[in-house]
């Protein structure tokens, strides 16, 4: 075989391998989206029916089951939690990047180390403490607790974004008479806007998807979608319920998948930089 043909063969093999990887990565999502539009008779058929008359009855049943309420829980808790972490974490990241902080490195390592602690270690004490305060099952409790997941990420990622902004513009602002807060809010922050988008999106994904803390702390009143999904769909071994399972899954997935595909650039920047 000529070197030329060999190179073309290698290239074909490479593209095939990539195609297989994409197929495996996407298969669960494609499968569940298709299944959500199938009737009970179609949903468990193998080989899978690719051509079928789609139905919206599964989504109707999801609505009838009161999913809108839980969807609202998830939206409220996630948005509040993300806002709280960004509002707290972005100024802190600026401080670590620009101000002289006593013991800055140990403090940064402390912030980072929180990401290394298994959440269950926090979950048990938080449950006992919040139960004693009668706060289990409130939206506020979950919003505050989600600081654990988001704040360390926001601080570390934003610090690296601020570090990339030249300090010359701080100096220029100071010469123009801006105080420290004005320099941060009006000069440096706009230059690091991509970073804010990045940490906001990552925090959104992590919070929306979170299960353990929500399971332990949400009680009945503040259940978020992942918890509802496992509690309310007991007995989904029964293929009759697979359509309902699929439709509710798609409802849970839609926000994160859509956000990720729309602004993939930021997701990539965030995860690529998170290690």
């Amino acid at each position: 075989m000529s070197p030329h043909a060999k190179r073309r063969l290698a290239e074909a093999a490479r593209l095939l391998a990539i195609a297989v990887a994409v197929f495996i990565a996407m298969l669960p999502l494609l499968w569940v989206v298709l299944a959500s539009f199938k009737t009970a008779a179609d949903v468990s058929q193998l080989p899978p029916r690719l051509l079928f008359s789609p139905t919206l009855e599964n989504y109707q049943r999801v609505l009838d089951a009161g999913f809108a309420n839980f969807f609202r829980n998830s939206v409220v808790i996630t948005l509040a939690a993300v806002a709280l972490s960004v509002v707290l974490g972005v100024p802190a990241a600026y401080g670590f990047s620009r101000l002289r902080v006593p013991a800055a490195r140990p403090l940064l390592l402390f912030v980072l180390s929180i990401r290394f602690v298994p959440y269950i270690v926090f979950a048990v004490p938080l449950f006992v403490i919040l139960a004693n305060l009668r706060l289990v099952g409130t939206h506020g409790a979950l919003v505050v607790v989600y600081i654990l997941i988001n704040l360390p990420l926001v601080v570390w990622l934003m610090k690296s974004f601020f570090d990339d902004v030249p300090t010359d513009i701080d100096d220029a602002a100071a010469v123009d008479g801006a105080n420290r807060f004005q320099t941060f809010a009006l000069v440096v922050l706009p230059s690091a806007a991509a970073g804010v988008a990045c940490v906001t999106i990552l925090s959104f994904i992590f919070t929306w998807n979170e299960y353990l803390l929500a399971l332990v702390l949400s009680g009945r009143a503040a259940q978020t979608l992942p918890v509802v999904l496992t509690r309310f769909l007991g007995g989904m071994e029964d293929p009759v319920r697979w359509g309902l399972l699929s439709a509710s899954s798609v409802v849970v997935l839609a926000p994160v998948v859509i956000v990720t595909l729309l602004v993939h650039r930021y997701v990539r920047a965030g995860f690529g930089g998170s290690a």
Partner: peptide, 24 residues
């Protein structure tokens, strides 16, 4: 391709697990 390869990681793990368990 880069965007699609990211999808498993951002899918809600509870949902992905249910899909694998139920359908696969």
């Amino acid at each position: 391709v880069r965007a699609l390869l990211t999808v498993p990681m951002i899918m809600t793990p509870v949902v992905s697990t249910l899909v694998w368990k139920t359908f696969f």
